[in-house]
Amino acid sequence: MDGVSFDIPAGSFTVLLGPSGCGKSTLLRTVNRLVTPGSGTVTVGGRDVASIEPTALRRATGYVIQAVGLFAHMTVAQNIAVVPELLHWDRERIARRTDDLLELVGLDPLRYRSRFPRELSGGEQQRVGVARAIAAEPQVLLMDEPFGAVDAIARRSLQDEMLRIVRTLQTTVLFVTHDVEEALRLADRIAVMRDGKLLQYATPEEMLGAPANAYIAQLFAVNADLRRYDTLRNALGQET
């Protein structure tokens, strides 16, 4: 990574967009110190993360990954309770919070609480993954291609619910994806990265209206073509 510098307003939904290997995941992982930058600093709420003890920092930062990584030997409720337990919440509060979170991500607590991850669909697993990440009410939520492995239909509804959830919680979200469509659906602001460099950081409207360079223009143009093709195909499909 080189010369990547930008400010993310608290409570906003920022998408890091770029091809695989462009450094977007690495950038994300510097925020909770899973990766230490060779030089430069990352500050959250005015504090340099390098000055915060890594486990404390991570417990206060939600983290969702594409592979979900639910603990296979723990039930759904136990998975969600991991961080609150690390923070020594009392049992009753944890139980209440677990049920609330399951409701929030659209899973019936009575039905899902005691299930094991292997008994859930991919979409359901990632819902639990999100619930686990936000269990201790983090200020910042890091999401690394969280919906990359779920099918298109489940992805849509997960995206919609994600937006609903983070707006209710007013969490600052940093969301990594290589999917332009997804970025446009979710982002307040998009940071386009390529080869470890930040190409443009702007709202979706600004970026579509005034792309900083040809690469970004093309990135969104191809996408626009696809969308037009999609609409056309749908229209034709309905006629025949």
């Binding site: 983290y63 979900v68 990584g69 690390l86």
Partner: peptide
């Protein structure tokens, strides 16, 4: 599985907790 180890670390478990709990 790597994913579960990555999650354990990313969620804020100490190395000891990662080992014994996951």
């Amino acid at each position: 599985p790597r994913a579960q180890l990555d999650a354990a670390r990313g969620i804020g478990m100490s190395s000891r907790q990662q080992f014994w709990r996951v």
